[in-house]
Write a protein that binds this DNA or RNA. Structure first.
Lengths: 342, 342
DNA sequence: TTGAAAGCGCTACCAA
DNA sequence: TTGGTAGCGCTTTCAA
């Protein structure tokens, strides 16, 4: 059977309350007694039961991550593993653990929300990839539930969020291609409801317009295969773009593959810029130019905020953190490679 | 304040025990009363508190995944995201959730073990990438704690495990290269203590020996960069191998990059075969030949077993499941491409 | 069929 | 400084 504080108390001839104090590191315990209790705890390999503690303290020391995407789309997506491993890295220096869930449909999403939060399974949530009219956030707020949105809160102002300026990111990517001399700059976006996608498209549109160019936009699902087939379609169209901004590295790899199939040389016949700056960028011959969103920093800020508002029971006023992004130029967008070497 | 069964009971003019029965779906409640209680529950948006339930039932409905690797190595590793997303996919049809942790050093590993298990944070564990002398398994067994090892249990027989036959997998990869006419077949392994690595090396050694060839083995850390530099080293050696078996796809990408830098054509001057058959395999021009370990099946069997032994309190006798693996031939190992097209 | 009550293991309050 | 004790919200006997 399991060893409880009651058992330790009996064996050390003290009250259970005293054992609790020793566990909590309370100073008001005589050294001699403390030693005795610690000795018994050690010899019986005692560890407190977090379930009881959670119930009592109204705190589980668990934070939830809800990815809003189909599990199959996540397959091999490096953004996901970067994101998760950065969270784990951050939490490993705290008493918190991570509970991951995934929700694709709106229904399962509400279920996850209910199961995770209303049941008090987790103390707080990290939300990613919100839609503009995201009812999750509204519901969480109504319940005064601690959460941090990684993404653009849009209209919803009174919430904690950490994000890049994705309009800017889209603009940076586009501007770079234009500066490299591309004139038919296209954009392969993600699902059209997503704010990340919308924002980058907006930055893209502003930039091509300013340059007197015409926008060409294609929407694709996430993932290699989806982007690959949309890429094939885009590159087979009559008015073929000479360069593409692609929503993320993984999708960009699909586009690279499409270009390969159509025997379009990158970057000569097709310039490519994407986002996230994951390891994938080094896998393309010559490298894939990508806008680094500094995911590590985004995650650290998000986790930091979340733990703070969890600890102070959501008293802290809503904050919005914008993490700067930066273009990482590699071969896929360099029509003039000698410049890169300079 | 939070709505409890007590509140519902008062509002519905019944006892708290009756509310509990309604929640549990107990048949012994009069229909009229059930309706009334359900009505109050709905109108007050009641959800049971899993913390209290966990304490009472001695069950958290949480399973733990402990990855034994440095968080930074996980960056962008598609194996990780495949593994996790398959688990999430499986669990989404069950009342269980996933708690992920990561441990690099032996110390942090013991901490994770203690924190997760002895504190009863999770009901059971999935262990991956064991070393041969893995004390985690021994400790877990001593405590009669439900867990499933994904990997080779080695000497430790009396535990649940799910695995591929990695000796066979190593042999299949090697045999394929030999059949393709490569004669200096090398192996870039992972950390030498790891059983996966050991087993595949063993299969490799057996196969090259049977073919009258000499083994050439290099050890590398996980990850793209580490494999890349070991690859550079291997391919710069005097007695350069004409082909390489690489421990996983991600590392293989590093080797591909190394080959590119050394201007070695794949597959003409260098044949490559790796393991896992992740999406990365399609990112290499011509494709990367890889041994599919059928991760989805491995995960499903592991989760299935784990939930069974969690539910029956570890009564089920230890089982070992071996999931078959299969070679997926792509361009990186095909010296005679026309054969592939046939 | 229903309610009263015990208790899961812990924290924290109040007395002594 | 220590012990007694009241819950945290729930499930599950045991009586009624």
């Amino acid at each position: 059977m399991r060893v409880t504080q009651q058992d330790i108390a009996r064996l050390a001839s003290v009250s259970q309350a005293t054992v609790s104090r020793v566990v909590a590191g309370d100073a008001r315990v005589e050294d001699e007694i403390r030693e005795r209790v610690l000795g018994v705890m050690k010899s019986h390999n005692y560890r407190p039961d977090v379930r009881a503690r959670s119930l009592r303290q109204q705190r589980t020391h668990l934070v939830g991550l809800v990815m809003k995407r189909d599990a199959r789309d996540l397959q091999g997506d490096p953004f996901f593993s970067m994101f998760v491993s950065e969270i784990l890295d951050y939490l490993s220096n705290t008493p918190y653990h991570l509970c991951v869930d995934i929700a694709s449909s709106a229904v399962s999403q509400t279920n996850v929300y209910d199961e995770l939060l209303r049941t008090r399974r987790v103390d707080g949530l990290i939300l990613v990839e919100s839609e503009p009219r995201d009812n999750r956030a509204t519901r969480l707020q109504a319940d005064h539930f601690p959460f941090v949105l990684v993404g653009n809160p849009g209209e919803a102002k009174h919430l904690h969020s950490v994000d890049n300026d994705n309009v800017l990111a889209g603009a940076i990517a586009t501007q770079h291609l234009i500066e490299q001399g591309y004139r038919k700059v296209g954009f392969i976006a993600g699902p059209s409801e997503l704010t990340v996608s919308k924002d980058r498209v907006e930055g893209y549109c502003q930039t091509v317009s300013s340059a007197g160019l015409r926008p060409r936009i294609w929407y694709s699902d996430f993932g290699f295969d989806a982007a690959r087939s949309v890429g094939l379609q885009a590159l087979s169209s009559e008015d073929r773009p000479d360069s593409l901004v692609v929503l993320d590295d993984f999708m960009a790899m699909g586009v690279v593959d499409a270009a390969r199939e159509l025997r379009l040389a990158v970057p000569q016949s097709l310039g490519i810029v994407s986002f996230n700056d994951t390891h994938l960028c080094n896998l393309v011959p010559g490298g894939l130019t990508s806008v680094s969103l500094n995911i590590r920093e985004v995650v650290r800020r998000a986790c930091g905020t979340l733990l703070r508002i969890v600890e102070d029971r959501n008293e802290e006023p809503p904050s919005r953190v914008v993490v700067p992004c930066a273009l990482k130029v590699r071969g896929s967008s360099l029509r003039t490679p000698e410049v890169a070497l300079a």
